[in-house]
Design a protein around this nucleic acid. Structure first.
Lengths: 364, 364
DNA sequence: CTGAAAGCGCTTACAG
DNA sequence: CTGAAAGCGCTTACAG
């Protein structure tokens, strides 16, 4: 192998300016510079014109204190850890964006950790975050993915979850599933569609139960019997089960399972509107309904859940529930800030609820 | 306001164990513990059984060196900065995931920065990353978004871009657009579709030109005239232009623009296959083609670009080009590692090319 | 009003 | 083979 040709080493990325550099320029000690730049104990500490001079120098030299040194000295890191299953996951990518956006508003940065890429990554990421001294951790890893949430919370009390992790001491933000069910149903009822079908993915999950309660409440509010609602609780016979991918919560539902849904809800129950567990199931249903000659929304209306941009691209464009990720993100950052300010046991309720909102397109 | 009820302060998240703690336990000095745990200068430094004892203690006490202290002392931060336009953007969310996955394999962490959330964020994020002492920066901000890339590269030479930033000294990973064009065209030609239409978004962009060259090369390889290819170069007359959103590169193409594409490529040119600029345009075309009674793929085939999961949900499922983000991510991390190891002016080529791959579904 | 000094936890020459 | 010590850049009591 030939010796690498010597190349001109570019000027080392200009050594950053330190407190001593300013002190030397200003002809004072670092203590003075420090107290001026930190603004501690008001202005009483330093002569006004000295302070002026120091501030000017700092600006001029573009001084930025070393976060590393500050942190070692005991200051906050101004870094938050963000645990996700996979950043590419459609259910989380927008939440990632909005969380970082909020974190940045507080002058902080976001350290990300994909936990579904390999077993044990959840715990390893949490350890890394903690040893780096993050100010708090956001855990938006869907409950279907593994991870020791209890240990996480014990080791980092300033943790906020997205969706209930099922721990007594956890602070979390959740989608109001009752409101979601009610809003979807109300939207269908408004157009006279009283026979409703709900295609659940996992009927045992609390979220499904709450949505069903919401749908029933909407029916009851119009004095309609609960029998107007039929629930598809999963396949029977030979139909393949409704199941998500291993690494994401994308749902790929095979045709026989979709037929099973359609047979039960549209053919048997004669539903005028279907509420689908999420936009992916809804989109798959749209395709299968068209293949079977059932028109949407004329024969049956379809409402999704998530308001993924996918909704714009399917045919017909899908009416869906927007989960208002930016509100959830705002609430999560606010919650963690309060934990930082007032200690890890906040007086406010631990469960913060965000109400989804119907976005009307053409499918319902 | 009532005084907050005093609540039991939970045990402070166990003070992490330091080098001195181990030293005290082991009855040696910190220097010895340090050299054992860092394994510097081989084992010659310390008596074997002392080393044993120290290693055992470290394991037992679950010792993790403070990255902050190490960094202050001059070690690498083991943190990489990742500049994105918006983490929720469909074109980037999977790249974010794969980059973090690769970074983690190297024992490092990823700091994320959304730059499209507000003006000036690109520069502010870059500053933050640099002042935190990141080992390198990945910039996957699409060129349509603002940001001073030249200054970024000057201040942090260990920067790797996704797609050519147009700077002479930049190292970047790019999609081989020529191969993309050729592969799409070859796929159409294989099924006897020789009349091809290409719907560009921005015909002035180099990427579009390269893809066109690739399509022409595929035609030439079969001794077909270049006139078999028609290029839709944007709307004329009243049709609304093809344009992306402000904060993402999602494309919402209005119906009149889609009609313009269809009129020019399908009606006038009688194309048997359309190559779309991306999956979003392709999906919109699928819908509009169906509305006009043109069958896909029977009357005209459609090929997308990106292989977004959207492809599975549109009707018919879209044949597309997978950009192999995991390969791009691997190449980006490898490139930055070489810059770290061998200095910022690597001997290897600065442009690293990734070849996309056709994923066949039903639209072509 | 200002400066000298200790210390955060680690690494690493240097002296025994 | 081992330990005492300096120093990374900052903050903050403490002494003038």
């Amino acid at each position: 192998m030939p010796a690498r040709a010597p190349h001109a080493v570019p000027a080392p990325p200009t050594k950053s300016v330190r407190l001593v550099d300013i002190a030397r320029e200003a002809g004072v000690s670092v203590s003075v510079v420090g107290s001026v730049l930190n603004g501690s104990r008001g202005n009483s500490r330093v002569a006004p014109e000295t302070a002026q001079r120091i501030n000017a120098l700092a600006k001029q030299l573009n001084y930025r204190p070393s976060p590393t040194a500050q942190q070692l000295r005991g200051k906050r890191s101004n870094v938050f850890g963000l645990l996700v299953a996979s950043a590419g996951d459609p259910l989380t990518s927008y939440l990632v964006e909005h969380l970082d956006e909020e974190v940045v508003k507080h002058g902080c940065q976001t350290l990300i950790g994909n936990t579904a890429v390999a077993p044990g990554r959840f715990e390893a990421c949490a350890d890394e975050f903690i040893s780096r001294g993050v100010d708090g951790i956001f855990c938006i890893v869907h409950s279907m993915f593994p991870g020791d949430r209890a240990k996480l919370l014990a080791r980092c009390p300033n943790t906020v979850f997205y969706c209930d992790p099922g721990l007594p001491d956890a602070t979390f933000v959740e989608i109001n599933q009752f409101a979601a069910g009610r809003a979807s149903a109300e939207h269908l009822l408004q157009s006279g569609r009283t026979r409703i079908g709900f295609a659940v993915a996992d009927p045992a999950a609390a979220s499904g139960k709450q949505r069903i309660r919401g749908i029933k409440a909407a029916l009851a509010a119009r004095r309609l019997p609960a029998s107007e609602l039929a629930i598809y609780k999963g396949p029977r016979g030979s139909a393949a089960p409704l199941r998500p991918d291993e690494r994401t919560v994308l749902w790929h539902t095979p045709d026989d399972a979709l037929d099973d849904v359609i047979d039960e809800l549209v053919v048997r129950h004669r539903a005028a509107g279907i509420i689908a567990h999420n936009d992916f199931l809804a989109s798959a249903l749209l395709k299968r309904l068209r293949a079977r000659g059932i028109r949407v929304p004329d024969d049956v209306a379809v409402v999704g859940y998530l308001n993924h941009y996918l909704c714009e691209y399917v045919d017909p464009p899908l009416t869906s529930l927007d989960l208002r990720h930016h509100l959830a993100a705002k609430a999560m950052v606010k919650a963690v800030q309060e934990m930082i300010d007032h200690g890890p046991a906040p007086p406010q309720p631990k469960a913060i609820s965000v109400e989804p909102m119907v976005v009307v397109r053409q499918s319902a």
